[in-house]
Simulated assay, not measured.
Amino acid sequence: MSDPVDNHAAPLDASVDALSDVLDLIHLRGEGLTVVGAVGGADVRHGAGERVVHLVEEGPVELVVDAGARLRLGKGDMALLATGAEHRLRVVERDGSWMSGRFLVEESAASPLLAALPRVIVLRGSEPGLEWLPLSAGLLAAEIADPSAGSRAMASRLLDLLFIKALRAWSDTDGAGGSPGWLTAALDRSLGPALWAIHRHPEQPWSVEELAGLASLSRAAFAARFTRLAGDPPARYLARLRLARAADRIATTTEPVGAIGRALGYESEAAFSRAFAREYGTAPRDWRAARNGSAWPG
């Protein structure tokens, strides 16, 4: 008899899981892929609030962010503007072209999270370790040139991939350490086990000692590292995560407010409502009423 096939798959690293949870929370979705062609000297503008990625097919192209920093992008380069910074693209020498894709998110959850990022993340297609970039760009270009069944879904998934890959590349640079926030902490491997636990079970009354043990750090070292990278102490991070999850459920489900609060660790609806109002400036029921009057992709 032949040996049984081992179908056991090793679990994903906890720090990757923490980032996945955060991206699930903001409802990231790539959409609206287009090809732009422009003659030398022409400007293509993007207003504030547009979260987009640009992949240069023919260049060079000049990227001007917030009427300030000027960056030159060559063929094969990518620029991610995840914070929604106003910017424009300009062909500086000869005719140029690029692909642009936009990202939809749930703004109430995404705004504080993505604020940790720089206004623009640039990846150079010629750099070692970025072999996935021209491959992804080629797949996107093929879907645009010859669309068929599933092309829209394919493009959406590829845009999501580019977004995540850009975050990882940014995390690997020294620049990431100077921007505290939820995302910076989620990308830190040493905090991965603790963040995985918090994100998987935000309803639990996690103590600093418990989380430090998961991270294999002393209480003081864990608290200091967590606060430096996340921008909040562990207890405040947990509270904000609970409320962000609650806001998402209030906006996207018909669950009773009190049940949502209890599911996320609050002892009473009154305690939950007070905490929610402090964070979002309005009571949970008013939040639900306001959100039901506006559209966003769920």
Rank of each mutant, 00 (worst) to 15 (best):
T253Y: 08
G281A: 07
L89Q: 12
R70M: 01
G258R: 15
P297G: 09
K165P: 01
E209D: 03
G177L: 08
L243M: 06
W170N: 07
F272H: 03
S126E: 10
L81M: 14
Q204I: 06
H46E: 13
V61H: 13
L187W: 00
G76S: 10
V35A: 12
E86G: 07
L12K: 06
G181A: 00
L81R: 09
V53W: 07
D24G: 14
G41Y: 14
G298M: 15
V208W: 03
R242N: 05
R291H: 12
G68E: 12
F103R: 11
H54R: 14
S268F: 04
F103K: 10
R278T: 13
L217V: 12
G30C: 02
G177F: 08
L23E: 08
F222G: 03
D43A: 15
L133S: 08
D43P: 05
L89Y: 14
M154A: 10
V5H: 01
G181L: 00
L123R: 14
G298N: 11
A295D: 09
D24L: 13
A110G: 04
G175A: 09
A271N: 10
W132G: 05
L71K: 08
L12N: 11
A197P: 04
A153K: 07
P205I: 04
L214Q: 05
R168E: 11
A169E: 09
S190A: 07
A194S: 08
V39M: 14
A289C: 00
V120M: 03
A283N: 09
G37C: 01
D43M: 13
L130C: 04
L23C: 08
P147R: 09
G129F: 11
D43S: 10
W132L: 10
A247C: 05
T227K: 12
G261T: 09
R236W: 03
L81H: 08
L187F: 01
L23V: 15
L71V: 12
V5F: 02
P284T: 08
G150L: 04
L161Q: 15
P134I: 12
T227L: 06
G231H: 13
S190Q: 03
V61E: 07
R88A: 15
G258I: 07
R88F: 11
L123D: 02
D95K: 11
L264T: 00
L81C: 10
G150I: 10
W132N: 02
T227Y: 04
R51W: 00
I250S: 05
V120H: 06
P233W: 00
R200C: 03
V16L: 05
E209Y: 06
F272L: 01
L217C: 07
R242D: 04
T252R: 13
P112W: 13
A275T: 03
S207R: 15
T253F: 08
V53I: 12
S148T: 14
